[in-house]
Design a protein around this nucleic acid. Structure first.
Length: 432
RNA sequence: GCGGUCGUGGCGAAGCUGGUUAACGCAUCGGAUUGUGGCUCCGACAUUCGCGGGUUCGAGCCCCGUCGAUCGCCCCA
């Protein structure tokens, strides 16, 4: 039996919902313009090894990728996240040699993960992401976080908290990792199956396990901050200091470690505390990575970025009762008085459109009443009416809906009258 | 990958222990009003209950499977 439903975890976007996406994308572009971040587009699929890097223990990379053989020759993967492909491109195009570092990028596009769908969690979701590569400074960490918060603030989202942590540099992280292994060694067999795996692969991840959250070994686990060297400590202090003085209230969360393995130093998550968000509450999250550029064959440069889920942002807006939809009303609706008038009406509509007016018309010769109902639904500001008598004299009846004013004009006066009535919404003035 | 709930016209939904015309509201279309909408009244609109199979004289209601949504876990954006 053929299945013509959308595949699980995917959706069609159209109508009112589409206008929200447009609104968001416009806001994103304006914001990135102001911050000086340039758009970059990388492929939706890459060679599998771009994402599946050695020693990576994350679920996203190991269990959730859409991987397929290209003509049986090479293994390709639909990108599960935005960073890896972007770094690959940064290195491949030798952007690390640019005189102005850091390079600042943003992207908006689909990501693919084989997951069990839920509200706010799709198999295809869209991320707005940002990456700043080539220079390392607490100012940059703060700027990236600020940019994300700026966006959700402009949208009016309020029920959020900013979680931040540091994983330190490589030396600190390794020292901490060893300490954790030692700490958990006696009790590892009491932990959940996932944690036993994490113990081997990435013991940091045991810390934010929900299953074992109450286990004495987790409660008494050593904290990263005790293992940070001075440089890592100073760096983190600077980041939080700058954010605080920028008016951002941050919550230091020493159990926050993030799901992708490449992070070092700053990691952060902005989560919604609105109950309607359910268990998919992270609006955006990211962190700094020190070794990724080098991993892809570039020089030793550091980068930082975040990914923000568009669908999740939309859920958050709904949860807070914020409606950003924006349905554009029609300027003109052409009503036909009888089926014989349809082609004349069509020509009039063409004139209006040539004049830059958003114009609708009836295509089927429905009843007068039905056409006027469409006028209301489309929100048309001006109605044109053509009937037999008008056609004979090359005239048209023009009605201004707001003022109820109605005139009979010759068709060559039409555009002039529309300009007079609709000037403020005119396409040529505002570029819609 | 695990567990729970759910799936009826474009939308929101009723449908009692299976019984035969699948309520109702909104929207749509037509008419009252043959060239002026938003109000009112009248009328029309589901060969069919996500899909497939089974039980039965009979299934939207029961059983099995399947697809999808949703909630929790896991994970993450």
């Amino acid at each position: 039996m053929a299945n013509y439903q959308v595949p699980r975890g995917t959706q069609d976007v159209f109508g009112k919902e589409m206008t929200k996406w447009h609104m968001l994308e416009e806001l994103i572009r304006n914001l990135c313009y102001v911050y000086g971040y340039d758009e970059i587009r990388t492929p939706e699929f890459e060679h599998t090894e771009v994402f599946h890097r050695e020693n990576d223990s994350s679920d996203v990379v190991n269990k959730e990728m859409y991987t397929f053989m290209d003509r049986g020759e090479r293994s390709l993967t639909l990108r599960p996240e935005g960073t890896a492909g972007l770094i690959r491109s940064y290195v491949e195009n030798k952007l690390y040699a640019h005189p102005d570092l850091p390079q600042k990028f943003y992207y908006v596009g689909p990501c693919f993960r084989y997951e069990r769908p839920q509200k706010g969690r799709m198999r295809i979701h869209h991320q707005f992401g940002v990456e700043v590569i080539g220079e390392k400074s607490p100012l940059i960490d703060a700027e990236v976080i600020l940019l994300g918060i700026d966006l959700i603030t402009r949208l009016g989202i309020q029920d959020t908290k900013v979680l931040i942590n540091t994983l330190g540099d490589k030396a600190s992280r390794l020292a901490y990792r060893d300490a954790l292994k030692e700490h958990f060694a006696p009790s590892v067999h009491e932990l959940c199956g996932d944690c036993q795996r994490r113990y081997e692969q990435n013991p940091l991840r045991i810390l934010d396990c929900k299953v074992d959250a109450g286990h004495p070994a987790l409660v008494s686990a050593p904290e990263i901050h005790a293992y940070l060297n001075q440089e890592s400590k100073d760096y983190f202090d600077a980041v939080t200091r700058i954010l605080t003085s920028s008016g951002i209230r941050v919550e230091i969360s020493d159990r926050l470690v993030r799901g992708l393995d490449y992070y070092s130093h700053t990691v952060f998550e902005v989560v919604s505390v609105n109950k309607e968000m359910g268990s998919q509450a992270t609006i955006f999250g990211g962190g700094r990575y020190d070794e990724l550029v080098e991993y892809f064959g570039g020089p030793s440069q550091s980068g930082i970025g975040f990914g923000m889920g568009i669908e999740r942002l939309l859920v958050a807006l709904d949860a807070e009762g914020i409606d950003i939809s924006d349905e554009e009303p029609a300027d003109v609706y052409v009503v036909s008085l009888g089926k014989e008038m349809l082609e004349s009406a069509f020509q009039l509509a063409a004139m209006c459109r040539a004049g830059g007016y958003r114009t609708e018309l009836d295509y089927t010769g429905r009843s007068f009443k039905a056409q006027f109902k469409s006028v209301d639904r489309k929100g048309a500001k001006v109605v044109l009416m053509v009937g037999e008598s008008e056609i004979k004299e090359n005239k048209v009846v023009v009605k201004n809906i707001a003022t109820q004013e109605q005139l009979t004009l010759s068709t060559d006066q039409l555009i002039h009258q529309l300009d007079h009535w609709l000037d403020e919404n005119h396409v040529c003035e505002h570029g819609h």
